[in-house]
Amino acid sequence: MNVENGIHDAHYYVPEPSRWPITGSIALFCMTCGTALWINDMQLGKWLLLAGFLILIHMLIGWFRDVITESQHGDYGQQVDHSFRWGMSWFIFSEVMFFAAFFGALFYTRTISVPELGWFSDTHEQLWPAFKATWPGVSGPKIAPYTPMEAFGIPAINTALLLTSGITVTWAHWGFVKNNRTQMALGLALTVALGAVFLVLQAFEYHHAYTQMHLTLASGAYGMTFFMLTGFHGMHVLVGAIMLSVMLGRVLKGHFTPEHHFGFEAAAWYWHFVDVVWLGLFVFVYCL
Score class of each variant (00 low, 15 high):
A160R: 01
E4D: 11
H208G: 03
S89V: 07
Y76T: 01
T191E: 01
W119R: 15
F131P: 01
D9Q: 09
P15N: 05
W278F: 15
A36R: 02
L60C: 14
S219R: 13
F91V: 06
Q72S: 09
I157P: 02
G118W: 07
Y108S: 05
L117V: 07
G153H: 07
W278D: 14
L217H: 04
L199K: 06
C33W: 14
P15L: 03
V277G: 09
W171M: 07
T109L: 06
S113D: 03
Y286R: 01
T257M: 11
L37N: 00
I143K: 04
D66K: 15
E95V: 09
S89C: 01
N5E: 12
V197S: 09
Q183H: 10
G220N: 14
I39G: 01
F103C: 06
I167W: 09
A133F: 13
L190T: 07
G234C: 08
M228S: 10
F232A: 10
F152V: 13
V277K: 10
D66F: 09
W90S: 04
G187Y: 07
I39P: 00
F91H: 03
S165F: 05
L281T: 05
F232P: 10
I57V: 12
W47I: 00
H255N: 14
W119F: 12
L194Q: 08
E16A: 10
G223P: 01
F256H: 12
A51R: 07
A133P: 01
Q212I: 12
M88L: 08
N158K: 14
H58P: 00
Y270D: 06
L60M: 14
H214G: 07
C287T: 15
L217T: 06
L60I: 15
L56S: 15
E16G: 03
G263Y: 12
G195E: 04
G240P: 02
T182C: 02
G6L: 04
Y146F: 05
F120L: 14
T147F: 13
T111G: 05
K253W: 04
G140T: 04
W90D: 00
P258R: 09
A185H: 12
F99R: 00
H82V: 02
Q202G: 11
T225D: 15
P115V: 08
M97Q: 07
Y146Q: 03
L244N: 04
A100N: 03
M59H: 14
H214W: 06
M243L: 15
A196I: 02
A133I: 11
S219W: 11
G240W: 08
A203N: 08
G77I: 07
F93L: 15
F227S: 05
F93A: 15
M184G: 05
D122Y: 06
G137D: 13
T69N: 14
T216Q: 10
A130C: 05
M247H: 10
L161E: 06
A160D: 02
V177A: 11
G34R: 04
F264R: 12
L281P: 01
F176E: 01
M31N: 02
T32D: 02
R110D: 02
A151N: 13
W135I: 03
G137W: 08
D275A: 13
G24Q: 05
R85F: 13
K178V: 07
V276L: 09
L244I: 11
W135M: 04
D122R: 06
A221G: 09
M213C: 08
H233K: 13
G104P: 05
L50N: 02
G175N: 06
F99W: 01
G62V: 14
M228L: 15
A101D: 10
I154Q: 07
Q43G: 02
L163N: 03
I39M: 03
G231W: 10
